[in-house]
Design a protein around this nucleic acid. Structure first.
Lengths: 117, 117
DNA sequence: CATCACAGTATCCTTTTCGACACTATGTGC
DNA sequence: GCACATAGTGTCGAAAAGGATACTGTGATG
């Protein structure tokens, strides 16, 4: 939700919430995850890795991630434009979070229907 | 986002995304966090712990968490109604995720302005 | 000459989310 | 008799998120 810097924190669960806010938006963690395992990727590479995302959304999410200092955007001024995205230090520091998310999902979502449906 | 069971997964970063979907909605993790550290809580106790949440929202989030099998809702049929919420097994299994979120937040959000603003 | 890929913009429109506010029923305290 | 607390529900409406589609400019390719 926070477009820019965002929101006097609700300060209640606070750091938890604030962290979540950084990675909200339907595609952010997926993008971060892809960059985490895939290293440096070009715009269309990410697009192909996440077929369901639209260009507009991907652009959006990448811009927000960049603004939050989580990914680095490197533009090569060549003629078929070439733009590479990679995780920043800060982005890479999210690895435990992303991985915790992923392993929980791996363990719990296969049996999701059995438990929650 | 998923009200009920939700969404043929985008299956791209998949388990990561799906997990995130379970705890989206502005207040879910805060609630989970409060229940994690606070144990069993009554409706209005949670409300007081998270002053910014409205009743409607809190009710909503609790209902979704219950539907997802993450919290347990126990109603005592006494006359000033008494309803207690606590984490289920499944909910408690999210602890590493919530804690990863929290510790990242604690480490990174104090210096946020310095890095991202 | 027409088309493709690249990395986007721009515009429009629908859906979802969320907050504000009012309302419920009941037992207790004043 | 009145308000209060409990744990909600219901309705309304604004704002945000997100999807669909069309468009840009350039160089290489056919």
């Amino acid at each position: 939700m926070p477009r820019k810097v965002a929101k006097p924190p609700t300060c209640a669960g606070c750091s938890v919430e604030a962290t979540l806010n950084l990675i909200d938006g339907k595609w952010k963690i997926v993008v971060l995850y892809k960059l985490l395992v895939g290293g440096t990727l070009r715009f269309n590479e990410i697009r192909r890795l996440i077929p369901a995302v639209t260009q507009r959304m991907l652009t959006n999410q990448l811009r927000e991630l960049e603004a939050d200092g989580l990914v680095i955007r490197k533009v090569y001024p060549v003629v078929p434009p070439r733009v590479e995205y990679s995780l920043s230090e800060r982005g890479r520091s999210l690895e435990p979070v992303i991985m915790a998310l992923k392993s929980w999902g791996d363990m719990n979502l296969s049996s999701e229907r059995a438990q929650a449906a």
